Simulated scan of single mutants.
Amino acid sequence: MPQLHSKFADNFGADVSAAAEGRAMCLIVGYRSPLAAIKTVGGTAVAALPSHRVVAIVDLRNLPLLQRHEDVRVAGPISIDPQRFAAFQRLVGAQP
C-alpha cells in the first residue's frame, strides 16, 4: 500500500496509507441517515452513531459513488483495530 505524506500527518507522527481496491471500514456522515446509500453501493453497516453517522464496510471501488450520493455529506476510510472498535461500540451503545 503506498504511503502518503503531508506536514499535518508528519507533525502527529501519523502514517497515512491508501488502498486502491478491496473493502475497507469507512465513516459515512449523512445529511440524513446514510443507511440506504450504503446499501445502494453494496456496503454493510457495522455501527450506527448519532447525528447521521455510520461506520460501514465498503468496497473501495464503490466509495466514489457513495461520496456523491445525495444523502451523504462525507465518506472515507478509517482505521481502528477490532478490539478498540468493539470497546468503542460498547461505549456508545452503537447498533447497525
Score class of each variant (00 low, 15 high):
Met1Glu: 07
Pro2Thr: 12
Gln3Trp: 08
His5Met: 11
Ser6Tyr: 01
Lys7Asn: 12
Phe8Asp: 11
Asp10Phe: 00
Asn11Gln: 10
Phe12Met: 12
Phe12Gly: 04
Gly13Pro: 07
Gly13Ile: 12
Gly13Trp: 10
Ala14Lys: 09
Asp15Ser: 14
Val16His: 01
Ser17Asp: 09
Ser17Asn: 12
Ala18Ile: 14
Ala18Gly: 05
Ala19Thr: 04
Ala19Asn: 10
Ala19Met: 10
Ala20Gly: 15
Glu21Pro: 00
Glu21Tyr: 09
Glu21Trp: 00
Gly22Asn: 08
Gly22Gln: 07
Arg23Asn: 13
Ala24Tyr: 04
Met25Phe: 06
Cys26Gly: 08
Cys26Ala: 15
Cys26Leu: 06
Leu27Trp: 03
Ile28Pro: 02
Val29Met: 09
Tyr31Thr: 09
Arg32Asp: 14
Arg32His: 12
Ser33Trp: 01
Ser33His: 06
Leu35Gly: 07
Leu35Phe: 05
Leu35Met: 13
Leu35Ser: 14
Ile38Thr: 06
Ile38His: 03
Thr40Lys: 15
Val41Tyr: 06
Gly42Lys: 02
Gly42Phe: 03
Gly43Val: 01
Thr44Tyr: 03
Thr44Cys: 00
Thr44His: 03
Ala47Asn: 03
Ala47Pro: 01
Leu49Cys: 04
Leu49Gly: 05
Pro50Gly: 10
Pro50Leu: 08
Ser51Lys: 14
Ser51Ala: 14
Arg53Leu: 04
Arg53Phe: 01
Val55Glu: 05
Ala56Leu: 10
Ile57Asp: 03
Ile57Arg: 00
Val58Pro: 02
Asp59Cys: 02
Asp59Phe: 04
Leu60Gln: 09
Asn62Gly: 04
Leu63His: 05
Gln67Asn: 09
His69Trp: 02
His69Asp: 14
Asp71Gly: 00
Asp71Val: 07
Asp71Arg: 05
Asp71Ile: 02
Arg73Thr: 02
Val74Cys: 05
Gly76Asp: 09
Gly76Arg: 08
Pro77Tyr: 03
Ile78Val: 15
Ile78Thr: 11
Ile78Lys: 01
Ser79Ala: 15
Ile80Asn: 00
Ile80Cys: 01
Pro82Leu: 10
Phe85His: 08
Phe85Trp: 09
Ala87Lys: 13
Gln89Ala: 11
Gln89Leu: 04
Arg90Gly: 09
Leu91Phe: 14
Gly93Glu: 07
Gly93Asn: 07
Gln95Asp: 13
Gln95Glu: 14
Gln95Ser: 13
Pro96Asn: 02
